[in-house]
Design a binder for these strands. Structure first.
Lengths: 241, 241
DNA sequence: CGGTTCCTTGACACAGGTCAATGATTGTGG
DNA sequence: CCACAATCATTGACCTGTGTCAAGGAACCG
């Protein structure tokens, strides 16, 4: 991880999306006050390991970071992918210990705000504290969502859901509205969805055969979001005729 | 749900286990101050439905309550079972809206503390607030744990893990050290573990065949915890010879 | 440009799902 | 308190989806 000095929110495309950016943009606290620092993490490097002391919380500026959780030390268990504009290791709030291992899936830039500073802002602006709690709750909700999906749905549905979800979160920074880049490997996707990389591959191929998406290596283009949504909801029937 | 008037922590066996009970027992706030109210929920009744306004938080006093989450409205998706001494709908802390539907799996008694009162106690005793945040974080961790288990492990391992986990949480109120009662149906267990009830049944039978547990209807007795733990960790080999 | 990693595809096996029939347990009304 | 009904649990036979293993091809990186 390399420190790239202070960030400059005015020049950042994520200004209106990322959490501290929003606070600064709305004039509730100056960007300077927040002491935002920018850093670079190269592909495969850990920002935190489980149990590490956490001094700052982070937003992803570019790239993609995976959060690995679950105490079963063995194979990794990806709990979340963080894409630009999203928060990292949010659960460390009080314990100040990371409950996850966070690893850059591709070389990524992040911004950090020291907890110490952030707590001051929270004290001064209670609604910022409230917004933060909401973000923590939302993180929990998305884990439960993933859990439900994995227990209830088949491979194709999971992959469809994954693509739709990611598309929603990447939209603002996609080249075209329907195209985006998968930062992570098939293995990472498979792990996240509780499948094997071969199965993920096959699902991509199947969705491509149905002309709902186009996949070429890491580039994904969603051709027919509506039909893809139906696949996600498990409507298998009556389409093949 | 029937209101049974004020609880009496002095007479409650869970005094030293449940969260507000502990606060009261340690004299950090009197039981009277907390305005604990006791209530009864009959089997199959919902205490909250998703999105309901939440006025109090609750502990389970006896029985078993399931928390159902995940927005996929269809089949229910059990995120947690709450057994005596445990907290319910903890995620509602700030939003004051339940993020889960909570249903009594068997007729249960619960105690409730109004959020309004609890927030006052938190303000007066910051370490209580801190403990509460820890409890919320722990709830998140256990969801991630479940997620990892379901993605990585086979049916027998999941069932073994489920029994071990439950045993740990029920120990203090078990008749004998190794025996306890499953409040929930096979269907509920299956849903929780991402299996079918038939599979859960078969796993129980298999574990019984190996003489690791004895199961008769809702009564479970763990005969060989150590070996059961090995099954949970996926050590299949070399045992059958 | 060559090596390495990652992705795709096929053939096959097996865990767990599905369907169905029987047996145990629980709750209810006479 | 017993008998009956309804629910819930168990077991078997069979089938499907996904994992596993293996081989070839594409993309990426230094």
């Amino acid at each position: 991880m390399r420190d790239d000095g202070h960030g400059d929110c005015e020049l950042c495309g994520l200004r209106r999306i990322c959490f501290p950016g929003r606070i600064a943009a709305e004039g509730r606290s100056s960007q300077r006050q927040l002491r935002i620092r920018r850093a670079r993490i190269t592909r495969g490097t850990a920002l935190y390991r489980m149990g590490d002391r956490v001094e700052s919380f982070h937003m992803v500026r570019s790239g993609c970071i995976k959060e690995i959780g679950g105490s079963s030390g063995a194979a990794d268990s990806i709990v979340n992918f963080c894409v630009p504009g999203e928060l990292l290791t949010v659960q460390a709030a009080r314990s100040a210990r990371s409950q996850t291992t966070t690893i850059a899936v591709e070389t990524s830039f992040i911004c950090g705000v020291p907890w110490r500073i952030f707590h001051q802002v929270c004290a001064a602006t209670p609604e910022v504290a409230g917004e933060f709690i909401d973000l923590v709750a939302k993180a929990g909700a998305s884990t439960r969502e993933l859990l439900s999906m994995i227990r209830a749905k088949g491979a194709l549905e999971r992959v469809a859901g994954f693509l739709l979800n990611l598309r929603g979160r990447m939209q603002f920074r996609a080249f075209s509205e329907r195209q985006f880049r998968l930062g992570m490997s098939r293995d990472d996707i498979a792990n996240y969805l509780g499948l094997r990389s071969e199965t993920v591959s096959r699902c991509f191929s199947e969705l491509a055969r149905r002309e709902l998406v186009e996949v070429r290596a890491k580039r994904v283009q969603i051709m027919n979001p509506q039909e893809l949504r139906r696949v996600y909801s498990g409507e298998t029937a009556a389409v093949l005729e």
